[in-house]
């Protein structure tokens, strides 16, 4: 069993009276493809934001390779090796694809090496033909890949993806899953996909954690999760378990 690379322990986040995350604990192991799923409003995105540093938890800790990153600013977390892509693409609208990826590449490189990194990443994400297009002129599927490319250019050890599969047709989805699989196997990047699209979860994830109402209700392999009655109940409501 591989060593844990990210450890979330007893993470709690409140918004006024609403408890978005309640004592959430999970572990992501090095080199695996991990997934967080749950019905709408379960707190997946909140958990996501709290790990990546865009929100500060009210209680609990996040450890990355033993280092406490709880509440650290996102740019520091990126330097340590974690980055993410967003559900609603936060595109650099007026920049070209190449320029956007450069921003990521500048994290670790300068000059010619930076340019080489950009080329490499554009290749992996199959964006070579879009190099000089402005991000605001891109369709959803290629834009998702631009988000991915930007993130990859920072050479993350752990990459978090928030609903990267949403809104993609079957072909686009398969293409994305392909790229992600290759990233995991060839580049050894640990992936954590927060997803709704079950196809992607079942097709990629090795371990899954299920959230509901801000709490972890199940953990296991895709096989175990898909037959877990509590999970089915969370998604389909009581009475759906037959």
């Amino acid at each position: 069993m591989a060593a844990p690379i990210l450890q979330v322990s007893q993470l709690t986040k409140r918004f006024g009276n609403l408890v978005a995350l309640n004592d959430v604990s999970l572990e992501i192991r090095k080199g695996e493809i991990f997934s967080i799923i749950g019905p709408n409003g379960a707190g997946k995105t909140t958990l996501f934001f709290n790990i990546i540093g865009l929100q500060k938890p009210d209680a609990g800790r996040v450890l990355f390779n033993g280092t406490d990153i709880t509440g650290k600013p996102p740019h520091k977390i990126c330097s340590l090796g974690i980055t993410c892509t967003f559900q609603v693409p936060r595109a650099f609208a007026n920049m070209t694809v190449e320029e956007a990826v450069r921003v990521g590449a500048y994290r670790r490189y300068q000059g010619r090496e930076m340019l080489r990194k950009v080329d490499e990443v554009l290749q992996i994400c199959e964006l070579e033909e879009y190099r000089h297009q402005r991000c605001c002129d891109m369709g959803l599927a290629p834009l998702r890949r631009v988000e991915l490319a930007r993130a990859l250019a920072t050479e993350p050890v752990l990459l978090l993806l928030d609903e990267a599969g949403a809104g993609l047709n079957p072909t686009e989805l398969a293409g994305l899953m392909d790229i992600l699989r290759r990233l995991n196997e060839e580049k050894h990047i640990t992936l954590c996909i927060v997803e709704h699209v079950m196809q992607m979860v079942m097709g990629l994830a090795q371990r899954i954690v299920v959230l509901d109402y801000g709490e972890v209700i199940a953990e296991g392999t895709p096989q175990e999760i898909s037959t877990n009655p509590r999970v089915i109940e969370a998604y389909l409501g009581k009475g759906a378990v037959c």
Partner: peptide, 11 residues
């Protein structure tokens, strides 16, 4: 362009 995206990319 987008402050959040920039932050997570290390800016």
């Amino acid at each position: 362009e987008n402050e959040e995206a920039a932050e997570v990319l290390g800016v």
